[in-house]
Design a protein around this nucleic acid. Structure first.
Length: 430
RNA sequence: UCCGGAGUAGCUCAAUGGUAGAGCGGGUGGCUGUUAACCACUAGGCUGGGGGUUCGAGUCCCUCCUCCGGAGCCA
Protein backbone atom coordinates (compact mmCIF):
# COMPACT_ATOMS: atom_id res chain seq x y z
CA UNK A 1 0.00 0.00 0.00
CA UNK A 2 1.39 3.39 -1.03
CA UNK A 3 0.45 6.09 1.43
CA UNK A 4 0.84 9.70 0.31
CA UNK A 5 -0.06 13.13 1.54
CA UNK A 6 -2.66 14.90 -0.58
CA UNK A 7 -0.21 17.64 -1.58
CA UNK A 8 1.91 14.97 -3.33
CA UNK A 9 -0.86 13.33 -5.35
CA UNK A 10 -0.28 15.25 -8.59
CA UNK A 11 3.07 13.44 -8.85
CA UNK A 12 1.37 10.02 -8.77
CA UNK A 13 -1.18 10.18 -11.60
CA UNK A 14 -2.29 6.71 -12.63
CA UNK A 15 -1.04 5.01 -9.44
CA UNK A 16 -3.15 3.41 -6.75
CA UNK A 17 -2.55 5.23 -3.48
CA UNK A 18 -4.03 5.62 -0.02
CA UNK A 19 -4.74 8.96 1.61
CA UNK A 20 -5.57 9.33 5.26
CA UNK A 21 -7.51 12.20 6.72
CA UNK A 22 -10.87 13.68 7.58
CA UNK A 23 -14.06 14.20 5.59
CA UNK A 24 -14.24 17.88 4.65
CA UNK A 25 -17.50 17.77 2.71
CA UNK A 26 -19.68 15.29 0.85
CA UNK A 27 -21.81 15.55 -2.27
CA UNK A 28 -23.74 12.90 -4.16
CA UNK A 29 -25.59 12.28 -7.36
CA UNK A 30 -27.48 9.05 -7.91
CA UNK A 31 -25.01 6.21 -7.78
CA UNK A 32 -22.01 8.56 -7.33
CA UNK A 33 -20.55 9.78 -4.08
CA UNK A 34 -18.05 12.64 -3.94
CA UNK A 35 -16.09 12.74 -0.70
CA UNK A 36 -13.77 15.70 -0.13
CA UNK A 37 -10.94 14.53 2.08
CA UNK A 38 -8.46 16.80 3.84
CA UNK A 39 -5.27 15.63 5.52
CA UNK A 40 -3.61 18.90 6.56
CA UNK A 41 -1.54 19.13 3.40
CA UNK A 42 -4.48 19.74 1.10
CA UNK A 43 -7.93 18.65 0.01
CA UNK A 44 -8.75 16.03 -2.63
CA UNK A 45 -12.05 14.94 -4.13
CA UNK A 46 -12.65 11.21 -4.16
CA UNK A 47 -15.24 9.63 -6.45
CA UNK A 48 -17.10 6.43 -5.62
CA UNK A 49 -19.27 4.81 -8.28
CA UNK A 50 -21.66 2.19 -6.96
CA UNK A 51 -20.93 -0.18 -9.85
CA UNK A 52 -17.18 -0.14 -9.18
CA UNK A 53 -17.05 -1.03 -5.49
CA UNK A 54 -18.43 -3.57 -3.08
CA UNK A 55 -21.72 -2.90 -1.32
CA UNK A 56 -19.85 -2.35 1.94
CA UNK A 57 -17.57 0.32 0.48
CA UNK A 58 -20.50 2.15 -1.15
CA UNK A 59 -22.39 2.01 2.13
CA UNK A 60 -19.33 3.45 3.89
CA UNK A 61 -19.31 6.38 1.47
CA UNK A 62 -22.90 7.09 2.48
CA UNK A 63 -22.31 6.66 6.17
CA UNK A 64 -19.30 8.99 6.66
CA UNK A 65 -20.12 12.33 8.20
CA UNK A 66 -18.28 15.65 8.19
CA UNK A 67 -14.91 15.35 10.01
CA UNK A 68 -15.10 11.57 10.34
CA UNK A 69 -11.61 10.08 10.07
CA UNK A 70 -11.06 7.82 7.05
CA UNK A 71 -8.49 6.22 4.78
CA UNK A 72 -9.35 6.11 1.11
CA UNK A 73 -7.61 3.90 -1.45
CA UNK A 74 -7.93 4.40 -5.17
CA UNK A 75 -6.36 5.47 -8.42
CA UNK A 76 -5.12 9.02 -8.86
CA UNK A 77 -6.59 10.59 -11.98
CA UNK A 78 -6.46 13.98 -13.60
CA UNK A 79 -9.95 15.42 -14.04
CA UNK A 80 -10.89 19.00 -14.84
CA UNK A 81 -14.23 18.53 -13.13
CA UNK A 82 -12.52 17.96 -9.79
CA UNK A 83 -11.61 20.93 -7.61
CA UNK A 84 -7.82 20.98 -7.75
CA UNK A 85 -7.72 19.09 -11.03
CA UNK A 86 -6.82 15.75 -9.44
CA UNK A 87 -9.18 13.19 -7.96
CA UNK A 88 -9.08 9.75 -6.41
CA UNK A 89 -11.17 6.98 -8.01
CA UNK A 90 -12.19 4.97 -4.99
CA UNK A 91 -11.60 1.23 -4.60
CA UNK A 92 -11.74 1.03 -0.82
CA UNK A 93 -12.76 3.18 2.13
CA UNK A 94 -11.74 2.46 5.68
CA UNK A 95 -13.60 4.34 8.39
CA UNK A 96 -11.55 4.98 11.53
CA UNK A 97 -14.22 6.83 13.43
CA UNK A 98 -17.64 8.26 12.62
CA UNK A 99 -18.03 11.82 13.89
CA UNK A 100 -21.40 12.93 15.28
CA UNK A 101 -22.96 16.11 13.90
CA UNK A 102 -20.09 18.58 13.48
CA UNK A 103 -20.71 22.02 15.00
CA UNK A 104 -19.01 24.04 12.26
CA UNK A 105 -21.04 23.88 9.06
CA UNK A 106 -19.77 25.22 5.72
CA UNK A 107 -21.96 28.31 6.16
CA UNK A 108 -21.17 31.47 8.08
CA UNK A 109 -20.74 31.67 11.85
CA UNK A 110 -20.16 34.41 14.37
CA UNK A 111 -16.73 35.02 15.84
CA UNK A 112 -17.77 34.13 19.40
CA UNK A 113 -19.16 30.76 18.28
CA UNK A 114 -16.06 30.02 16.24
CA UNK A 115 -13.78 30.97 19.12
CA UNK A 116 -15.72 28.67 21.45
CA UNK A 117 -14.85 25.94 18.95
CA UNK A 118 -11.32 27.17 18.26
CA UNK A 119 -9.97 23.61 18.64
CA UNK A 120 -12.14 22.58 15.69
CA UNK A 121 -12.06 25.89 13.81
CA UNK A 122 -8.32 25.34 13.25
CA UNK A 123 -9.32 22.64 10.73
CA UNK A 124 -10.85 25.16 8.33
CA UNK A 125 -8.78 26.27 5.36
CA UNK A 126 -8.36 29.94 6.26
CA UNK A 127 -7.27 29.23 9.82
CA UNK A 128 -4.94 26.64 8.40
CA UNK A 129 -3.41 29.21 6.05
CA UNK A 130 -2.90 31.70 8.89
CA UNK A 131 -1.16 29.07 11.03
CA UNK A 132 1.19 28.22 8.18
CA UNK A 133 2.04 31.85 7.52
CA UNK A 134 2.64 32.39 11.25
CA UNK A 135 5.02 29.46 11.14
CA UNK A 136 6.78 30.92 8.10
CA UNK A 137 7.19 34.31 9.80
CA UNK A 138 8.69 32.70 12.88
CA UNK A 139 11.02 30.57 10.78
CA UNK A 140 12.08 33.59 8.72
CA UNK A 141 12.69 35.55 11.93
CA UNK A 142 14.99 32.88 13.30
CA UNK A 143 16.82 32.58 10.00
CA UNK A 144 17.28 36.34 9.81
CA UNK A 145 18.70 36.86 13.29
CA UNK A 146 20.74 33.66 13.21
CA UNK A 147 22.35 34.75 9.94
CA UNK A 148 23.19 38.16 11.43
CA UNK A 149 25.15 36.65 14.30
CA UNK A 150 22.45 36.93 16.96
CA UNK A 151 22.35 34.26 19.67
CA UNK A 152 18.99 32.96 20.81
CA UNK A 153 18.83 33.54 24.57
CA UNK A 154 15.57 32.61 26.29
CA UNK A 155 14.20 35.11 28.80
CA UNK A 156 12.35 34.01 31.94
CA UNK A 157 8.55 34.04 32.13
CA UNK A 158 8.36 34.61 35.90
CA UNK A 159 9.74 37.98 36.88
CA UNK A 160 10.15 39.50 40.31
CA UNK A 161 8.84 42.97 39.42
CA UNK A 162 7.43 45.08 36.66
CA UNK A 163 9.92 45.44 33.82
CA UNK A 164 8.78 48.88 32.86
CA UNK A 165 6.47 49.74 35.70
CA UNK A 166 3.74 50.97 33.38
CA UNK A 167 1.28 48.26 32.40
CA UNK A 168 -0.72 45.98 34.68
CA UNK A 169 0.83 42.54 35.06
CA UNK A 170 -0.54 39.13 35.92
CA UNK A 171 0.37 38.29 39.49
CA UNK A 172 1.08 34.77 40.67
CA UNK A 173 2.02 33.19 43.96
CA UNK A 174 5.62 32.03 43.84
CA UNK A 175 6.15 29.93 46.98
CA UNK A 176 4.60 32.63 49.11
CA UNK A 177 6.31 35.42 47.23
CA UNK A 178 4.77 37.66 44.61
CA UNK A 179 5.87 36.98 41.06
CA UNK A 180 4.64 38.39 37.78
CA UNK A 181 4.32 37.02 34.27
CA UNK A 182 6.77 38.84 32.04
CA UNK A 183 5.67 41.69 29.83
CA UNK A 184 8.98 41.79 27.94
CA UNK A 185 12.29 39.97 27.77
CA UNK A 186 14.16 43.14 26.89
CA UNK A 187 15.98 43.81 30.16
CA UNK A 188 17.30 40.26 30.11
CA UNK A 189 18.34 40.65 26.48
CA UNK A 190 20.39 43.68 27.47
CA UNK A 191 22.28 41.45 29.88
CA UNK A 192 22.61 38.82 27.14
CA UNK A 193 23.89 41.36 24.60
CA UNK A 194 26.67 42.34 27.02
CA UNK A 195 27.58 38.64 27.16
CA UNK A 196 27.35 37.55 23.51
CA UNK A 197 27.26 40.87 21.63
CA UNK A 198 23.99 40.25 19.81
CA UNK A 199 21.08 38.35 21.34
CA UNK A 200 17.39 37.81 20.71
CA UNK A 201 14.55 36.09 22.46
CA UNK A 202 11.25 34.77 21.20
CA UNK A 203 8.56 33.94 23.68
CA UNK A 204 5.17 34.71 25.15
CA UNK A 205 4.56 37.93 27.02
CA UNK A 206 1.61 38.92 29.18
CA UNK A 207 -0.34 42.09 29.78
CA UNK A 208 -3.21 42.21 32.24
CA UNK A 209 -4.69 45.34 30.68
CA UNK A 210 -8.43 45.10 30.10
CA UNK A 211 -8.02 45.85 26.41
CA UNK A 212 -10.83 44.86 24.09
CA UNK A 213 -9.68 45.79 20.62
CA UNK A 214 -8.67 43.96 17.47
CA UNK A 215 -5.02 44.67 18.24
CA UNK A 216 -4.80 43.26 21.77
CA UNK A 217 -4.31 39.92 23.45
CA UNK A 218 -3.46 39.26 27.11
CA UNK A 219 -0.90 36.67 25.99
CA UNK A 220 1.09 37.39 22.85
CA UNK A 221 4.44 36.49 21.34
CA UNK A 222 7.29 38.90 20.84
CA UNK A 223 10.63 38.62 19.17
CA UNK A 224 13.17 40.92 20.79
CA UNK A 225 16.67 41.47 19.41
CA UNK A 226 19.25 43.49 21.33
CA UNK A 227 22.75 44.45 20.15
CA UNK A 228 25.78 45.94 21.88
CA UNK A 229 27.52 48.87 20.18
CA UNK A 230 24.36 49.76 18.29
CA UNK A 231 22.76 53.20 18.16
CA UNK A 232 19.28 54.31 17.09
CA UNK A 233 20.29 54.51 13.42
CA UNK A 234 21.62 50.96 13.48
CA UNK A 235 18.49 49.81 15.27
CA UNK A 236 16.23 51.26 12.58
CA UNK A 237 18.34 49.69 9.86
CA UNK A 238 18.09 46.31 11.59
CA UNK A 239 14.33 46.67 11.99
CA UNK A 240 13.65 47.54 8.35
CA UNK A 241 15.91 44.78 7.02
CA UNK A 242 14.21 42.28 9.31
CA UNK A 243 10.64 43.26 8.41
CA UNK A 244 11.43 43.36 4.69
CA UNK A 245 12.98 39.89 5.01
CA UNK A 246 9.95 38.24 6.58
CA UNK A 247 7.53 39.88 4.13
CA UNK A 248 9.58 38.67 1.15
CA UNK A 249 9.83 35.20 2.62
CA UNK A 250 6.08 34.88 2.99
CA UNK A 251 5.55 36.20 -0.55
CA UNK A 252 8.03 33.60 -1.85
CA UNK A 253 7.08 30.58 0.23
CA UNK A 254 3.39 30.99 1.11
CA UNK A 255 1.71 32.01 -2.15
CA UNK A 256 -0.97 29.35 -1.81
CA UNK A 257 -1.89 30.41 1.71
CA UNK A 258 -2.08 34.09 0.73
CA UNK A 259 -4.42 33.05 -2.07
CA UNK A 260 -6.64 31.08 0.29
CA UNK A 261 -6.85 34.21 2.45
CA UNK A 262 -7.64 36.32 -0.65
CA UNK A 263 -4.83 38.65 0.38
CA UNK A 264 -3.99 41.41 -2.12
CA UNK A 265 -0.22 40.99 -2.36
CA UNK A 266 0.47 44.35 -4.06
CA UNK A 267 0.85 46.26 -0.76
CA UNK A 268 3.24 43.55 0.47
CA UNK A 269 5.33 43.68 -2.68
CA UNK A 270 5.82 47.41 -2.05
CA UNK A 271 7.63 46.62 1.21
CA UNK A 272 11.20 47.41 0.10
CA UNK A 273 14.01 49.01 2.09
CA UNK A 274 14.69 51.73 2.97
CA UNK A 275 11.55 52.51 4.96
CA UNK A 276 10.66 56.17 5.50
CA UNK A 277 11.88 57.61 8.80
CA UNK A 278 10.19 60.61 10.33
CA UNK A 279 10.54 62.26 13.72
CA UNK A 280 7.73 62.56 16.22
CA UNK A 281 7.60 66.28 15.45
CA UNK A 282 7.14 65.56 11.74
CA UNK A 283 4.43 63.01 12.51
CA UNK A 284 2.59 65.57 14.61
CA UNK A 285 2.82 68.02 11.72
CA UNK A 286 1.18 65.43 9.44
CA UNK A 287 -1.67 65.01 11.91
CA UNK A 288 -2.22 68.74 12.18
CA UNK A 289 -2.11 69.16 8.41
CA UNK A 290 -4.85 66.54 8.20
CA UNK A 291 -6.83 68.47 10.76
CA UNK A 292 -6.76 65.82 13.48
CA UNK A 293 -7.27 67.09 17.01
CA UNK A 294 -3.91 65.94 18.33
CA UNK A 295 -2.21 67.57 21.30
CA UNK A 296 1.57 67.83 21.02
CA UNK A 297 3.30 65.76 23.67
CA UNK A 298 0.80 62.91 23.76
CA UNK A 299 1.32 59.42 22.44
CA UNK A 300 -0.42 58.51 19.19
CA UNK A 301 -3.78 56.75 19.35
CA UNK A 302 -4.95 54.18 16.81
CA UNK A 303 -6.60 56.74 14.46
CA UNK A 304 -3.43 58.88 14.61
CA UNK A 305 -1.24 55.92 13.63
CA UNK A 306 -3.52 55.17 10.70
CA UNK A 307 -3.43 58.80 9.54
CA UNK A 308 0.38 58.87 9.67
CA UNK A 309 0.89 55.54 7.91
CA UNK A 310 -1.61 56.48 5.17
CA UNK A 311 1.05 58.82 3.78
CA UNK A 312 3.33 55.90 2.90
CA UNK A 313 3.16 52.70 0.85
CA UNK A 314 5.41 50.77 3.23
CA UNK A 315 6.03 50.66 6.98
CA UNK A 316 7.07 54.01 8.43
CA UNK A 317 9.42 54.48 11.36
CA UNK A 318 8.61 57.29 13.77
CA UNK A 319 11.54 58.22 16.01
CA UNK A 320 12.39 60.59 18.88
CA UNK A 321 9.16 60.74 20.88
CA UNK A 322 8.99 63.02 23.91
CA UNK A 323 10.98 61.29 26.67
CA UNK A 324 8.20 62.04 29.15
CA UNK A 325 5.82 59.50 27.57
CA UNK A 326 8.42 56.74 27.15
CA UNK A 327 9.89 54.08 29.44
CA UNK A 328 12.61 54.82 31.99
CA UNK A 329 15.37 52.94 30.14
CA UNK A 330 15.21 55.01 26.95
CA UNK A 331 18.30 57.08 26.20
CA UNK A 332 17.71 60.81 25.75
CA UNK A 333 18.69 62.50 22.50
CA UNK A 334 21.88 64.52 23.20
CA UNK A 335 20.71 67.06 20.62
CA UNK A 336 17.39 67.54 22.45
CA UNK A 337 17.16 65.97 25.92
CA UNK A 338 13.36 66.28 25.94
CA UNK A 339 13.29 63.54 23.28
CA UNK A 340 14.05 59.83 23.60
CA UNK A 341 16.17 57.87 21.12
CA UNK A 342 13.28 55.52 20.41
CA UNK A 343 11.45 54.27 17.34
CA UNK A 344 8.04 52.78 16.57
CA UNK A 345 7.34 51.07 13.27
CA UNK A 346 3.83 51.59 11.94
CA UNK A 347 2.65 49.06 9.39
CA UNK A 348 0.53 50.31 6.47
CA UNK A 349 -3.14 49.56 5.68
CA UNK A 350 -4.30 50.85 9.06
CA UNK A 351 -2.52 48.08 10.96
CA UNK A 352 -0.53 50.42 13.21
CA UNK A 353 2.37 49.71 15.53
CA UNK A 354 4.18 46.40 15.06
CA UNK A 355 7.56 47.39 16.50
CA UNK A 356 8.65 49.46 19.46
CA UNK A 357 12.30 49.94 20.39
CA UNK A 358 15.28 52.22 20.61
CA UNK A 359 18.62 52.96 22.13
CA UNK A 360 18.96 52.24 25.88
CA UNK A 361 20.37 54.54 28.53
CA UNK A 362 23.94 53.36 29.10
CA UNK A 363 25.12 55.83 31.78
CA UNK A 364 24.86 54.52 35.34
CA UNK A 365 23.95 57.78 37.08
CA UNK A 366 21.46 58.88 34.43
CA UNK A 367 19.70 55.50 34.54
CA UNK A 368 19.61 55.50 38.34
CA UNK A 369 18.05 58.97 38.33
CA UNK A 370 15.49 57.83 35.76
CA UNK A 371 14.47 54.79 37.80
CA UNK A 372 14.01 57.07 40.77
CA UNK A 373 12.07 59.64 38.79
CA UNK A 374 9.66 56.99 37.53
CA UNK A 375 9.01 55.90 41.12
CA UNK A 376 10.43 52.42 40.56
CA UNK A 377 12.12 50.42 43.35
CA UNK A 378 15.87 50.70 42.78
CA UNK A 379 16.48 47.41 44.60
CA UNK A 380 14.66 45.49 41.87
CA UNK A 381 16.91 47.00 39.23
CA UNK A 382 20.28 46.54 40.85
CA UNK A 383 21.25 43.76 38.48
CA UNK A 384 20.14 45.92 35.57
CA UNK A 385 22.24 48.83 36.82
CA UNK A 386 25.22 46.45 37.02
CA UNK A 387 25.17 46.30 33.23
CA UNK A 388 26.09 50.01 33.27
CA UNK A 389 28.66 49.49 36.01
CA UNK A 390 30.70 46.75 34.38
CA UNK A 391 31.72 47.73 30.86
CA UNK A 392 28.75 49.80 29.72
CA UNK A 393 28.43 50.35 25.97
CA UNK A 394 25.83 52.00 23.72
CA UNK A 395 23.22 49.41 22.81
CA UNK A 396 19.80 49.19 21.22
CA UNK A 397 17.05 46.77 20.34
CA UNK A 398 13.35 46.41 19.64
CA UNK A 399 10.36 44.16 20.10
CA UNK A 400 8.11 42.96 17.29
CA UNK A 401 4.64 41.64 18.03
CA UNK A 402 4.20 38.40 16.12
CA UNK A 403 0.40 38.38 16.04
CA UNK A 404 0.14 41.95 14.75
CA UNK A 405 2.70 41.13 12.09
CA UNK A 406 0.86 37.94 11.11
CA UNK A 407 -2.39 39.92 10.98
CA UNK A 408 -0.86 42.54 8.74
CA UNK A 409 0.72 40.08 6.31
CA UNK A 410 -2.38 37.85 6.21
CA UNK A 411 -4.75 40.79 5.89
CA UNK A 412 -6.59 39.51 8.95
CA UNK A 413 -7.99 42.47 10.86
CA UNK A 414 -8.18 40.79 14.28
CA UNK A 415 -5.10 39.42 16.06
CA UNK A 416 -7.17 36.72 17.78
CA UNK A 417 -7.08 34.65 14.59
CA UNK A 418 -3.30 35.03 14.38
CA UNK A 419 -2.47 32.84 17.38
CA UNK A 420 -3.62 29.22 17.71
CA UNK A 421 -5.41 29.63 21.03
CA UNK A 422 -5.94 33.30 21.87
CA UNK A 423 -6.06 34.57 25.41
CA UNK A 424 -8.18 37.66 25.80
CA UNK A 425 -10.05 39.44 28.53
CA UNK A 426 -13.13 37.26 28.01
CA UNK A 427 -11.44 34.20 26.62
CA UNK A 428 -9.47 31.59 28.57
CA UNK A 429 -10.89 28.52 26.79
CA UNK A 430 -10.38 26.36 24.86
C1' U B 1 -13.05 51.38 33.87
C1' C B 2 -15.81 54.43 30.08
C1' C B 3 -18.88 54.87 25.42
C1' G B 4 -21.86 52.18 21.81
C1' G B 5 -24.30 47.43 20.09
C1' A B 6 -26.37 42.45 20.46
C1' G B 7 -28.69 38.11 23.08
C1' U B 8 -35.03 34.18 19.20
C1' A B 9 -34.05 26.46 16.52
C1' G B 10 -27.33 23.29 16.55
C1' C B 11 -25.55 27.92 13.36
C1' U B 12 -26.69 32.83 10.69
C1' C B 13 -30.75 35.83 11.04
C1' A B 14 -36.40 37.48 10.35
C1' A B 15 -40.98 38.53 13.00
C1' U B 16 -46.61 47.13 13.66
C1' G B 17 -47.96 44.98 21.16
C1' G B 18 -52.14 40.09 18.56
C1' U B 19 -51.12 31.89 16.42
C1' A B 20 -42.82 31.54 16.65
C1' G B 21 -40.56 31.94 10.83
C1' A B 22 -36.59 31.30 6.83
C1' G B 23 -31.80 29.69 5.02
C1' C B 24 -27.94 26.49 6.43
C1' G B 25 -26.84 22.12 9.34
C1' G B 26 -29.39 17.15 11.05
C1' G B 27 -32.82 12.92 9.57
C1' U B 28 -35.61 10.21 5.49
C1' G B 29 -36.27 9.52 0.24
C1' G B 30 -34.78 10.75 -5.15
C1' C B 31 -31.05 11.64 -9.04
C1' U B 32 -24.54 8.06 -13.10
C1' G B 33 -20.05 14.07 -12.54
C1' U B 34 -21.24 16.76 -7.90
C1' U B 35 -18.52 21.90 -7.23
C1' A B 36 -20.63 25.73 -0.08
C1' A B 37 -24.67 20.46 -5.58
C1' C B 38 -29.90 20.14 -6.42
C1' C B 39 -35.30 18.44 -5.50
C1' A B 40 -39.15 16.56 -1.97
C1' C B 41 -40.57 15.45 2.94
C1' U B 42 -39.34 15.81 8.22
C1' A B 43 -37.78 16.72 13.35
C1' G B 44 -36.12 20.80 16.09
C1' G B 45 -38.10 26.72 20.63
C1' C B 46 -38.73 28.25 28.78
C1' U B 47 -37.29 34.19 22.49
C1' G B 48 -30.24 35.14 28.20
C1' G B 49 -32.21 35.47 33.90
C1' G B 50 -35.53 38.15 37.27
C1' G B 51 -39.29 41.85 38.00
C1' G B 52 -43.02 45.29 35.97
C1' U B 53 -46.87 47.76 32.37
C1' U B 54 -50.98 45.47 29.40
C1' C B 55 -56.94 41.84 27.98
C1' G B 56 -52.37 40.24 25.53
C1' A B 57 -44.92 41.07 25.59
C1' G B 58 -39.78 38.18 21.34
C1' U B 59 -41.46 43.39 20.85
C1' C B 60 -42.54 48.60 25.92
C1' C B 61 -40.15 49.88 31.10
C1' C B 62 -36.57 48.54 35.25
C1' U B 63 -32.63 45.40 36.73
C1' C B 64 -28.91 41.72 36.44
C1' C B 65 -25.87 38.43 33.40
C1' U B 66 -23.16 37.19 29.01
C1' C B 67 -20.86 38.47 24.61
C1' C B 68 -19.35 41.86 20.51
C1' G B 69 -17.11 46.63 18.70
C1' G B 70 -14.35 50.86 20.17
C1' A B 71 -11.48 54.11 23.81
C1' G B 72 -7.43 54.14 27.28
C1' C B 73 -2.77 50.90 27.69
C1' C B 74 0.51 48.87 24.40
C1' A B 75 3.33 44.68 20.50
Amino acid sequence: MHIFRISELSRHIGQEVTVRGWLYNKRSSGKLRFLLVRDGSGIVQTVTFQGDVSEAVFEASDRVTQESSISVTGKVAEDKRSPGGVELQVRDIQIHQIAPEYPISPKEHGSAFLMDHRHLWLRSSKQHAILKIRHEIIRASRDFFDSQGFVLVDAPIFTPAACEGTTTLFETDYFGEKAFLTQSGQLYMEAAAMAVGRAYCFGPTFRAEKSKTRRHLTEFWMIEPEAAFMDLEGDMELAENYVAHIVHRVLDERKEELKVLERDTAPLEAVQTPFPRISYDEAVRILHEKGLPFEYGNDFGAPDETAISENYDRPVMVHRYPAAIKAFYMKKDPADPTKALCVDMLAPEGVGEIIGGGQREDDYDTLLASIDKHGLPVSAFEWYLDLRKYGSVPHAGFGLGIERTVGWICGTPHVRECIPFPRMMHRLTP
